[in-house]
Design a protein around this nucleic acid. Structure first.
Lengths: 224, 224
DNA sequence: GTTTGGATACCTGTATACAAGCATGCTAGA
DNA sequence: TCTAGCATGCTTGTATACAGGTATCCAAAC
C-alpha cells in the first residue's frame, strides 16, 4: 500500500538541500564533533552527488554558525570558544526573553495545559539524554512560537542548534535533568501569572543559568 | 609610493567574497531594490567571473536575509513584509539593549568623549541622508562594540544591514534627522549615568521607536 | 638529532559543459 | 476574440574538468 504523503518523510527538493540536511543532522547528533574536518568529496559520495551542492550547503552552514570555512583549507565543524558559548547563551537569553514577553499576551488555559503536558514529557524522558534534549527543546520552542514571531523563532532555533552539541556533551556526562526539571517548573509558574515583564526576566535568567554550568564542565573536560 | 595596507581598500581574497561584497554593496546602496531579480549570469559578467562563485554568494546572502532564493526560479532581493520589519526592529532592540548593558561597565571618560564626537558628526551630517545613515550607524556600532562581544556585534550588524534599505527610503523622503538627534542625545544622557539597567531599557526604547514610524511611512507609500 | 628546504600529492576553488525545469509566446480550437 | 495546450528558449541546478594553493613527507645540511 502506498504511503500517504503526510506520513512520508519529506524528501529534499534539491541536492543542496539534501546535503545541508545530511550534514546538519550528523552535527546535531554529535557524530561530527566540533573541530572535525569536512571533506566535500567524502560527503558528496556518501549521499551520491557531486561536490558542488555540498559546497553550497557548507556556505549556508557556515553562515548559520555550524561550520567554519577556512579559505583554501576546507571546512570544519565549528568549535566555539568559551567566550563564544557564553555569548550565544547571552543572545539566546534576551531573544527567548523577548519571545516569552510577547507570548504571555497570547496565553490562555489551553496553552497552559499544553505547556504542562510538555513538562510532563520532559519528566518522563529524564533517564535518556537524547529524549531529554528533544523534549526540553520542544518546551522552549512551544513558548517561543506563542509569540507569533516567525523570524524571531527562526533566530532562536539557530542559536539553540549551535549550542546543542555542547548541551549534549554536558547531559551525557553530568546528568543534570533533575535540577533542570525544577527550574522549568519555576519558570512556568512565573509565566502562568501573566506578568509579561516578570516572565521575560524569568526566561532570561533561566537560559543564562545554564551557561556557567556548561562552560565550567567544558573547561574541566579540556584540562584532563 | 606604495600604499600602506591600513588605508588600502581590502581586496576580497576569493571570487565568492568579491561577488558577495559587490551584491551586498549594491543592495545596501539601494541600487538593487527589494523584489528586484538577481541573475547570476549578469552579475558574473559584470565582475568578470563565472556563475559559480556568484551562486555561492547568493546562498550566503539568502541565509543572512538580504536575498531570497526561490527554487528553480532564481534569486531576488528580499522584500520584507511589514510584520518582518517590525520583528527585525524588535530583535535589534533587545540585542542592542544587551550590548548597551554590557557596554556600560566598560565606559569611562574617554569613551564618553568618543560618543560625543560621534554625535557631533551626526549633527553635521544632518543635511545629507547618506552621511546621516553612516554616521548614525557608526554611533550605534561604537556603543555595541564596547560590550566586547564580537558575535553579538556581528548579529546586530546583520540585522541593521537588513533594515538599512528601508531606513534609507524613509530618510530620503521624510527627513527625520532633526528629531532623531534629540533622541540620541537623550539616549546618551542615560548611558552616561552608568546605570546598566536603565541604559538597556533606554536603548531598547530608542531602537523600537523607529519601527512604527517607518512602517507607517511604507504603508502610506504602498497605498499611493 | 634537529631543522629547513623542496618535491609531491591532495584538496580546494573556479570555470565550463550538460541536464532539467520554468516562463513566455504562438497556434489552434471553441 | 479568448482560452487552452504545446513548443521553444532561457534560466537554474548539477556534474565534471582544470587550475591554484596547502600540507605532508623526506632528504640534506647544520
Amino acid at each position: 500500500m502506498k504511503q500517504s504523503s503526510s506520513t512520508r518523510v519529506k524528501e529534499p527538493t534539491s541536492a543542496e538541500a539534501e546535503a545541508y540536511a545530511y550534514v546538519l543532522k550528523r552535527i546535531r547528533a554529535g557524530e561530527l564533533k566540533p573541530g572535525a574536518r569536512l571533506r566535500a568529496e567524502d560527503i558528496a559520495t556518501q549521499i551520491g552527488m557531486s561536490r558542488m551542492p555540498v559546497r553550497e550547503a557548507f556556505r549556508r552552514l557556515d553562515t548559520e554558525g555550524y561550520v567554519t570555512i577556512r579559505p583554501n583549507r576546507g571546512a570544519i565543524v565549528t568549535d566555539h570558544t568559551f567566550e563564544e558559548i557564553q555569548e550565544l547563551f547571552e543572545i539566546r537569553s534576551v531573544l527567548e526573553g523577548l519571545a516569552t514577553r510577547l507570548a504571555v499576551e497570547q496565553i490562555g488555559p489551553p496553552e497552559i495545559e499544553e505547556m504542562r503536558e510538555l513538562l510532563r514529557r520532559m519528566r518522563k524522558g529524564q533517564k535518556n539524554a537524547e529524549d531529554w534534549l528533544s523534549r526540553h527543546w520542544a518546551f522552549h520552542e512551544y513558548i517561543c512560537s506563542l509569540s507569533g514571531r516567525q523570524r524571531l523563532v527562526r533566530e532562536i532555533e539557530r542559536l539553540h542548534a549551535a549550542l546543542e552539541p555542547f548541551l549534549r556533551l554536558w547531559f551525557f556526562h553530568a546528568n543534570r535533568p533533575v535540577v533542570a526539571i525544577r527550574d522549568h517548573q519555576e519558570l512556568m509558574n512565573v509565566i502562568e501569572t501573566g506578568d509579561a515583564a516578570k516572565a521575560e526576566a524569568a526566561m532570561r535568567e533561566h537560559v543564562l543559568i545554564t551557561a556557567p554550568r556548561i562552560i565550567e564542565f567544558l573547561q574541566r573536560r579540556d584540562d584532563t
